[in-house]
């Protein structure tokens, strides 16, 4: 049996929040750490909260790193969320961790040398699309999404940058390449706008 959506379970996040949000927009998603199910799924969500180092260890141990790479290569729509986006890049400053390398770039830590900036960047912030993408359609100026993170993705190529947000400076809030799309914010916790993005992911054919 093919699951329509598999949420990758790598001991990292509040996966059920993502599952509940999918249910709210009409999709039954399965949480699994079985690489075979990931390979068989029609589309994959790769969420994350936690640290890059332990997440990568967990992915390698279970073989999910290879399964995820294959899912992306096979052209399946894949959605990375927060840490799930960060570890799609080549390298993370968090615990100096080599990551999956699906998209050229690195994950960096906010410098936060201004004392009024709290760590982590936690709360609602405006997401500004800089390039059209099916998953970002409908986002209007001033629309905010929920963020919780101390590290941010820095894609090497302009072409992979889809949206910006501003904290100590501008950073990538959404990164994409072909059938892979990553959000630094949490669509599952971002109210109606976040749910709309998830609904768009469920309908997405992986083209952009």
């Amino acid at each position: 049996m093919t699951d329509s959506i598999v949420i990758i379970d790598y001991d990292a996040g509040n996966l059920r929040s993502v599952q509940r949000a999918c249910a709210e927009v009409g999709a039954a998603a399965v949480i699994s750490n079985d690489p075979q199910r990931v390979l068989a799924a029609e589309r994959v969500i790769f969420p994350g909260v936690g640290a890059a180092g332990s997440a990568m260890r967990s992915l390698r141990r279970t073989g999910l790193d290879a399964a995820l790479r294959q899912a992306v290569e096979a052209g399946k729509p894949v959605l990375g969320i927060c840490l799930g986006l960060q570890i799609s890049l080549d390298h993370s400053e968090e615990q100096n961790t080599p990551t999956l390398g699906l998209i050229p770039g690195a994950t960096k830590r906010f410098r936060l040398d201004r004392p009024e900036l709290k760590v982590p960047h936690m709360g609602w912030n405006e997401v500004r699309p800089v390039r059209a993408h099916p998953l970002l359609e409908g986002i209007a100026p001033g629309d905010e999404f929920y963020f919780v993170h101390a590290y941010y993705p820095a894609p090497e190529r302009e072409a992979n940058l889809y949206a910006l947000a501003t904290y100590e400076g501008d950073f990538a809030a959404a990164v994409g390449q072909g059938n892979y799309f990553g959000a630094q914010f949490h669509p599952e916790k971002s109210g109606r706008f976040g749910l709309r993005l998830l609904r768009r992911f469920i309908d997405w054919d992986g083209q952009c």
């Binding site: 059920r16 509940r20 929920y146 599952e188 916790k189 971002s190 109210g191 109606r192």
Partner: peptide
């Protein structure tokens, strides 16, 4: 509540 409310 978690089934109906999609904020933190």
């Amino acid at each position: 509540v978690a089934k109906e409310v999609f904020i933190p």
